[in-house]
Design a binder for these strands. Structure first.
Lengths: 107, 107
DNA sequence: GCTTTTGTTGGCTATTTTACCAAAATAAAC
DNA sequence: GTTTATTTTGGTAAAATAGCCAACAAAAGC
């Protein structure tokens, strides 16, 4: 693979890697509904604040979320709402997999 | 996060994690054009066969690709062509980011 | 049967990721 | 100015990931 192409895919992979964690997917899903501050997300996730903060930092770096500082709180929101379409496609994929598995189980 | 929800997101995350690597993204892109055997992909990627094989194994486990054994060769193909839409969406996202960065640089 | 081609698996090391705690930063409230 | 609430950063240990080599497996050809 040539160098130029490699860079292209590294850049893309960064975004997918950011989505490759249950907690971060949950956060993206929630931010798809409405913006949320770190504290709220922390309560929903049920992990340490520092952990959630780092997850958000990663999402921010990948360009998937944006933030808005208001007072002591920082509100995060979805920068690319199209990621929600990803989820729909994924749902179909998983459904398809399950279907195949059932077919296999039933001979 | 309740247990049921956690499982849902772990399952999803597995797929995104599978896409979170430059080599695997490249492979998915190529399989989007046509099916390929491991040997071909290995040449294109330029890594050890065992490495490519493991990447393919991961993609297979996530449900993104399927395979068909013919003779000594194993041909892999894209199981969920909708992932190609992901790439388009991503392209838009990255473009948007670049735009913002330029705007920032130019004041 | 033996060799060749094509893929997978196991072993190993280096790197990355994750999650928690503690400590520091920042803005508001008193 | 000192506390309070919110968030980020640094440190650290455990777990996961990635890549190569060597060894093994399976099908095809001689």
């Amino acid at each position: 693979m040539e160098n130029n192409l490699r860079h292209k895919y590294e850049y893309r992979a960064k975004v997918f890697k950011a989505m490759g964690h249950p907690t971060r997917l949950f956060i993206l899903d929630e931010l798809g509904k409405q913006e949320r501050c770190v504290y709220e997300l922390t309560e929903m996730v049920g992990a340490d604040v520092s952990t959630v903060s780092k997850h958000l930092s990663l999402l921010k770096e990948s360009g998937l979320v944006e933030y808005d500082k208001r007072g002591t709180q920082i509100f995060y929101s979805l920068a690319a709402p199209c990621v929600l379409n990803f989820f729909d496609c994924l749902e179909a994929l998983l459904h398809n997999q399950m279907h195949k598995q059932l077919a296999w189980m039933n001979g």
